[in-house]
């Protein structure tokens, strides 16, 4: 659950929260593309650091750290797989060398950078704004409505599932008993009431929507309108600059990016 906690929006005010979601999405996309472009440690460290001011301005450090902590298990797995597989699958097995270590760390960091950027996006963008952004990007309204409604009902359904489980446990149901097949079967008494209730709920929702003039006109208006402000243009500028710089380095200096470990060796020699 902790991974999801790191993506759950909490309503606070900060310059980052005020930004247009479309612009923030562009920024996340830029980070995403750059992270995929490079597989060396140095640029990925820079990419990681570049996002920190964002987190602090938005004031979501606590949630953000939680999302990273949640990603820790996957990160460890990625590290171990990279290390082991590169070691055995390369044609000339190397001894566990500093460069191999660095490569594995880089791959892990790439994952963390991706988690970091998406987490910042979801932590600072209200689902309402997200729906609005979809709407103003000419996604059909029915789809946008379905999206925000789904977001709205996830916590409600999660809570309901818990209540149903409690109710069945109180009738002697032991969810963890038996072999795998039995365990799956154990969930039937939970799933059926949950589905029935979801159907009933959707019927009630439809009734409520109809009663509030759903579909009265094709030209729907909107209480909120997203307008680009100065901060939005600044972020576009920042994202575009980073992206262009990254592309420039990637085209011309891709092969020259030094390994951190190779940088460390002369340092160590100098110290000696």
């Amino acid at each position: 659950m902790s991974v999801f906690e790191g993506f759950k929006f909490r309503r606070v005010y900060s310059p980052i929260h005020q930004l247009d979601p479309r612009v923030k999405f562009f920024y996340v996309l830029a980070i995403f593309v750059i992270a995929i472009m490079f597989n060396q440690l140095l640029p990925l460290i820079l990419l990681f650091l570049i996002q920190l001011p964002f987190v602090f301005i938005a004031g979501v450090q606590r949630e953000w750290i939680r999302s990273l902590r949640g990603a820790l298990l996957f990160a460890t797995m990625i590290f171990v797989f990279n290390f082991v597989f590169t070691y055995f699958w390369t044609e000339y097995p190397l001894l566990p060398s500093p460069s191999l270590l660095e490569h594995s760390i880089a791959m892990t960091l790439r994952f963390i950078v991706l988690v970091e950027s998406f987490s910042v996006f979801f932590l600072t963008t209200s689902p309402d704004h997200l729906g609005l952004a979809l709407e103003q990007s000419h996604v059909p309204y029915e789809f946008c409505f379905a999206f925000t409604t789904a977001v709205r009902f996830v916590p409600v359904l999660a809570e309901e599932a818990q209540t149903i489980m409690d109710a069945q446990k109180a009738r002697g149901l032991e969810l963890e008993r038996g072999n795998f097949i039995k365990k799956v079967k154990n969930y039937i008494p939970v799933l059926i009431p949950l589905i029935v209730s979801a159907i009933r709920r959707s019927l009630e929702l439809a009734e409520a929507m109809e009663s509030r003039a759903w579909g009265a006109t094709k030209k729907r208006t909107n209480l909120y309108v997203l307008r680009m402000k100065r901060g939005d243009y600044v972020l576009i500028l920042i994202s575009a600059t980073i992206l262009i710089l990254a592309a420039y380095f990637w085209i011309f200096y891709r092969e020259q990016i030094p390994l951190l470990s190779s940088l460390l060796i002369p340092l160590r020699l100098a110290a000696a």
Partner: peptide, 22 residues
Amino acid sequence: VSVAKLSREVGFVFQNPDHQLF
């Protein structure tokens, strides 16, 4: 003791019957 064991002595009827009928 487990919930299942305790439930033999303690019957709990939940608020909404739809949360248990299946």
